[in-house]
């Protein structure tokens, strides 16, 4: 039993670790999104350390927070059995203390370039800028997914319906994929499918030996597969091909 409430299980989830790995491997879009999602957390950590809410636009503290958070991403080690949140919070706190000590000790204001390392001169540039090409690709993919969901809605299906109607058995899934592929490839069938907004059973049985009950039971899933097979979502198409 996976008991995750009351902090009993503090291990990071695999999907989270996968995201961290990708960021470490240089996925800039993901890093940008990740930091964006963590901004409230960074502000909260800074507030806990300084007692005041930092100005996101211009304060040094916020910049230090971002740098420290980036450092936490780079240095986080999942093997040490520590949650990423507490680790990054510690890093932010320590970097902030370091900054305060150095400014007090030398009684001088450090320019922002003090926190720079490596060759980049602008931290935003270093941490938050992304490849333009990646952004365009990302936008296109997002649009494809949006149109997929819209198309599903046209057939009266929601994501919730799909989650509950996915067949459990691999054989059933393969049968559904077979049916979906026939509909997607046959122009007449696909036209009827689009027009009637349902699976053209009478014409379909001429091409495949399948009971109406099987189609009815997996109707929603088959419709989703047909829509995917007729889209430009190559990743999903590859998944379908892999189990065919």
């Amino acid at each position: 039993m996976n008991v995750s409430f009351w902090g009993i299980n503090r291990h990071e989830k695999e999907s989270f670790l996968d995201i961290l790995h990708r960021i470490k491997n240089g996925d800039r879009i993901l890093k940008e999104k990740f930091i964006q999602d963590y901004k409230p957390f960074i502000i909260k950590s800074l507030y806990q350390a300084t007692g005041r809410i930092p100005n996101i636009e211009s304060s040094d503290e916020f910049s230090i927070g971002l740098v420290a958070f980036n450092e936490a991403i780079e240095k986080f080690d999942e093997e040490k059995n520590c949650s990423f949140k507490s680790f990054s919070q510690q890093v932010i706190k320590r970097r902030l203390i370091d900054y305060k000590r150095s400014t007090q000790k030398n009684d001088k204001v450090y320019p922002f370039s003090y926190f720079e390392f490596e060759e980049s001169s602008n931290f935003e540039e270093r941490y938050l800028t992304t490849d333009h090409h990646d952004h365009v690709y990302n936008f296109e993919v997002k649009e494809e997914f949006s149109s997929l969901l819209l198309k599903l809605e046209e057939f009266g299906l929601s994501i919730k319906d799909l989650i509950s109607s996915t067949p459990k058995q691999k054989k059933s899934k393969q049968t559904c994929i077979k049916i979906a592929r026939i509909i997607a490839q046959d122009q007449a069938l696909f036209a009827k499918f689009n027009k009637k907004r349902t699976i053209p059973y009478s014409k379909l049985v001429k091409q495949i030996d399948v009971s109406q009950r099987t189609i009815e039971r997996n109707r929603k899933y088959i419709i989703a597969l047909v829509i995917i097979l007729n889209s430009d979502l190559d990743v999903l198409k590859n998944y379908i091909e892999s189990i065919e």
Binding site: K13, I163, A224
Partner: peptide, 14 residues
Amino acid sequence: QCDIVCIDKQPGMY
């Protein structure tokens, strides 16, 4: 595996 499933959203997911 051609399943449609739901998981907890993690930071960075899009």
